[in-house]
Every structure is written in C-alpha cells, then in structure tokens.
Simulated scan of single mutants.
Amino acid sequence: MKLVSYAAVLAGALAVMGAASPAGAASETTVRQQVTADAYPIGLVLGENQRLGGKQFYATYTLSELVGFNDKASSAWNNTTDKYFILYDDKSFIGGNNYCMRPGEYVWDLHQFNFGDKISSVRVLDAVESRSGCNGYRTFF
C-alpha cells in the first residue's frame, strides 16, 4: 500500500514529455519506466478524486479495511491482467453494496454509480472464484 501525490506523478509525466530537463537528468526511457513503476504498481489503484487524481491507494491483496483511505475513493482502476477485485462499501466485506472489477477495468468516476467515497474493504477473488469472473456480482459496465 502506497499513497502517492498526484503532483509527483504529474512532475514525472512532465519530465517524460520534456517539460523539465535539467542537466544530468535521467533519459526519457528511464523516467517513463520510473513513473510507470512508481505511480501504478500492478493491482487495484484507487484515486481520491476522479480520473485517479489526488492521493492514490494501492491494493494487491485482500484488505478487510482500507486504513487511511476508508470512504475516500472517487475512481478505481484494476490494472492487472488476471485478477478480479470485489469492492465493498463496509469494512470486513459486510453489506450487500459491492461491485466486481474485471482485469483492466477503469472507472474514472465512482460517483456515477453512487459508489464514490464509499469503498471500505477490498477482496481479491481466489483462483477458483476467478474462473467464473464477476458472475454473481454487480459490475460497473
């Protein structure tokens, strides 16, 4: 789990685009790899604001409570190729208000689904459950 400032990601992106190129700066390829690796590790990315803006929270495994980020996510991105994440509006996976995110799925505004600022726990489907994908769970799209 890692909180990253959107400004840090933007600064890295600007460096990649050539907006900031101080003497002795890393090459564009090195900066791009660093921004990609640091900004978005493989897993579930939750953004404090729409379009992953503001602070980000990363989940790579099941969490019964999003300590420090409870009820703060306004956007979400499952940037895996093989994992399904169930997002719950209550900690410890309680309550019927939940959504399943498929691999690669990106929701830039959770408020459109009346789910913004509500995520409190995250569960990764295990290998057996993943075979049926999001069947039995509500999905965003």
Results as ranks from 00 to 15, higher is better:
Glu48Cys: 05
Ser132Met: 13
Leu44His: 01
Phe93Arg: 06
Ala76Thr: 05
Asn78Trp: 11
Gly68His: 01
Tyr58Val: 12
Phe85Ala: 15
Val107Ala: 13
Asp126Arg: 01
Gly54Tyr: 07
Glu48Phe: 06
Ser92Leu: 09
Phe93Thr: 04
Ser132Arg: 14
Pro41Val: 02
Val107Met: 15
Asp117Gly: 08
Tyr58Arg: 03
Ala25Asn: 11
Ser92Ile: 00
Arg32Ser: 14
Phe93Tyr: 13
Tyr84Arg: 05
Thr36Ala: 12
Leu87Tyr: 01
Thr36Met: 15
Gly95Gln: 00
Gly47Ala: 10
Arg131Thr: 15
Val35Lys: 02
Cys134Thr: 06
Gly53Asp: 08
Glu28Ser: 12
Asp89Tyr: 07
Leu52Cys: 01
Gln112Arg: 11
Asp109Phe: 03
Glu129Ala: 13
Val122Met: 03
Lys118Val: 06
Arg102Gly: 03
Gly95Val: 00
Glu129Asn: 03
Ala25Met: 10
Ile119Thr: 05
Ser130Leu: 03
Cys100Trp: 02
Gln112Val: 07
Thr30His: 10
Gly68Arg: 00
Gln34His: 11
Tyr61Asp: 15
Tyr61Ile: 02
Ser92Pro: 00
Tyr99Val: 07
Tyr99Pro: 14
Ser64Ile: 04
Gln56Cys: 00
Asp126Leu: 02
Gln50Ile: 04
Asp109Gln: 10
Leu125Pro: 05
Ala39Gly: 04
Asn114Phe: 12
Gly133Ala: 11
Gly96His: 06
Lys91Trp: 11
Ser74Ile: 01
Gly53Tyr: 03
Gly47Asn: 12
Tyr84Trp: 10
Gln56Ile: 06
Lys83Pro: 05
Asp82Thr: 08
Gly43Val: 03
Ile86Cys: 04
His111Asp: 11
Phe113Thr: 04
Ile94Gly: 07
Thr62Pro: 06
Phe113Glu: 05
Trp77Asn: 06
Gly95Cys: 01
Tyr58Met: 08
